[in-house]
Design a binder for these strands. Structure first.
Length: 260
DNA sequence: ATGCCGACAGGATGTCGA
């Protein structure tokens, strides 16, 4: 089973690129982030035309997450528990049937947290705290779980082109990096790092300053696997070529193969 | 030190992203 995550930075602008990528990459399940549209405006028919079911937790202008799946989805649940007053659409969970068993998946768009010194950074940490609690509850179920998306966390120095340039940024604060480690300490595996230890493996390159041309990127899109999912991990890679296409997103897809 | 680019809402240009 091939499972992928991609921050598309507007599904409206990225629709043609997404349809082309789906036909070439042929994932079974896809988590999308930053769809930037309300549920009614999500281009369901286009994805259904390629054989995908859609689950959408949208929002006007900002944020918005979705799940695509060839197999029907069950237990479709938007929002992270822990703060009913949080209006931002950043989390969507569902249960999917594989050939050999079930897998629970979540599309995650963690807050950016910049600029430092504003309320945005505490909001980021509080949101990640809620994600940690959900991850802990799911781990207790001892089932295959994939928590994937844009975490807005640079885990280590080798995950960015110039650590000094990111020192003052919310994505590289010790508190942010600690939240990544806490997921690992719960028993979740960073699927990409389980397969590839090299530095310079990025998932995001800024539109500005020729970042892509100079390969000045960061790795912030992650797939965290519960122990039962990690046991079945066969491969995990970054579709970096997608940064080269026509009207590219600033993020590229990350995918893994699970024997499920 | 800041903007660079791109998307959005709306109909000019400010907000946001990372």
């Amino acid at each position: 089973m091939k499972i992928a995550t991609w921050n598309v930075n507007s599904i409206k602008v990225r629709l043609d690129a997404a349809l082309g990528w789906l036909q070439q990459a042929k994932p079974d399940v896809v988590a999308l982030q930053e769809i930037k549209c309300v549920d009614e405006n999500f281009p369901r028919e286009a994805f259904e035309g390629l054989g995908y079911n859609c689950a959408v937790h949208g929002q006007k202008t900002y944020n918005g997450v979705a799940l695509l799946s060839r197999r029907p989805m069950e237990d479709v649940t938007p929002r992270l528990p822990g703060n009913d007053g949080d209006e931002q659409s950043r989390y969507l969970e569902a249960l999917v049937q594989g050939d050999k068993g079930m897998v629970r998946v979540a599309s995650i768009y963690a807050p950016n947290g910049n600029p430092m010194g504003t309320e945005k950074f505490p909001y980021k940490l509080a949101w990640l705290e809620r994600l940690n609690a959900r991850a802990k509850a799911l781990r207790a179920g001892e089932e295959p779980v994939v928590l994937m998306g844009d975490y807005n966390i640079i885990p280590e120095e080798k995950d960015c082109y110039d650590p000094k340039a990111w020192m003052g940024d919310a994505l590289f604060q010790p508190e942010s990096r600690a939240m990544y480690r806490r997921l690992a300490n719960l028993g979740y595996t960073d699927a990409f790092r389980a397969r590839n230890a090299l530095p310079g493996q990025y998932t995001f390159w800024d539109y500005q300053a020729g970042s892509w041309r100079k390969n000045q990127g960061i790795r912030i899109d992650h797939m965290f696997l519960s122990p039962q999912a990690a046991d079945r991990l066969k491969d995990c890679q970054i579709d970096r070529d997608m940064r080269d296409g026509d009207k590219p997103s600033d993020h590229v897809p990350v995918w893994c193969i699970l024997d499920i």
